[in-house]
Design a protein around this nucleic acid. Sequence first.
DNA 1: CCAGAAATCTAGCAGCGCTAGATTTCCTAG
DNA 2: CTAGGAAATCTAGCGCTGCTAGATTTCTGG
Lengths: 198, 198
Amino acid sequence: MPTQSRRERARAERHELILRTARELAESIGWGAVTTRRLADAIDYSQPVLYGHFENMNAIADAVAIQGIEELIAVLRVARTTAPNPAAGLSALAKAYLEYASNHPAVYEAIFVRPTDLEFASADSPLLLKTAFAEFQAAIEPFAAGDDPETLTEVLWSALHGQATLAHARRLRPDQRDGRVELLVARLSGKNSPPSAK
Amino acid sequence: MPTQSRRERARAERHELILRTARELAESIGWGAVTTRRLADAIDYSQPVLYGHFENMNAIADAVAIQGIEELIAVLRVARTTAPNPAAGLSALAKAYLEYASNHPAVYEAIFVRPTDLEFASADSPLLLKTAFAEFQAAIEPFAAGDDPETLTEVLWSALHGQATLAHARRLRPDQRDGRVELLVARLSGKNSPPSAK
DNA sequence: CCAGAAATCTAGCAGCGCTAGATTTCCTAG
DNA sequence: CTAGGAAATCTAGCGCTGCTAGATTTCTGG
């Protein structure tokens, strides 16, 4: 192992340390309070070190977002493919999505809420977004009936995104999280209101 | 008219000037760029004058949000009550909501996106939120069937909110805005996929 | 062991929200 | 009509932000 390699390894480790710390900080104090000074302090280096790894503060949040969307894709895929049938798959995927958003609000914010240049910036991020989108589409497509599957997918994703963000902003009744997603899935998949009461 | 009154009138005018200017600035350059210095410059006063009218910058955005939600409520009510039947009313309300969000993105952001203390802060703002919520509920309630109307309302509102925010972030196909809302409304109201194709 | 390269830090800039204290403007009483 | 005091307004500045140039330290290869 040449010296060069050890340096590179140390550098890569610190790169991960920055990301991990940024993520932890964001989850505990919110992105708005994750400043270069605080982050540098937390990793025990001076601010300029951060700029040796990332172009700016925004790029750090973007990198956390990319890690997050990879996790999210995996979670969605497991939820969907583990289910015994399409209806259960759709329901599991929807619940898994909201659960991820609820358990990792700062990461979710980094991915989908924060004003991001991530759209067309990094070369691989649009691909990841497309992959995530494909998970939604695979889950809802069996219920497309005569409608355009892509449009239906956008409707599903938007509906879940809305529930995630409004729930996080405490604008929806917390105890009804499951009720909302179940009702949404039921109506979107066409299996509508139960025969009569209950 | 005693002197006191003229002063008060001038003060009220400037109050409105601040709000109007803040709103215009936000719509043209985004809330992130609406700073106390820029806003003060735009109204041709120094920064401290702003603090004679509002507690802080956030309170200005909150005030814009309150103006906005009043507008939005009126828009929703007209859309809903003008329609000839419940189905048309729901559709009109949904489209009006998305249109308002699209036409006044900064105001929409002030109301529903910006991290706000508006929840329990101002005395009248929760009432306004409840009133807006009631509009949604009135529109969707006829289609509740056996389901809880409040939950269904939360589902509707969340779904529209998601479409509004993701569309603004350019993460949904712009040309499919109407298609999405129509599909959403159709599925939520139980009038599902057309008999066969097309 | 030592020169040069690489890594890291110190110190600083401009802009942010916000405010204390100086200054100006205005109203009123004599 | 003017003097004085209250009200309105501004200047200047604090501590924070993201970010960077240049000094300094650390490490590496000859």
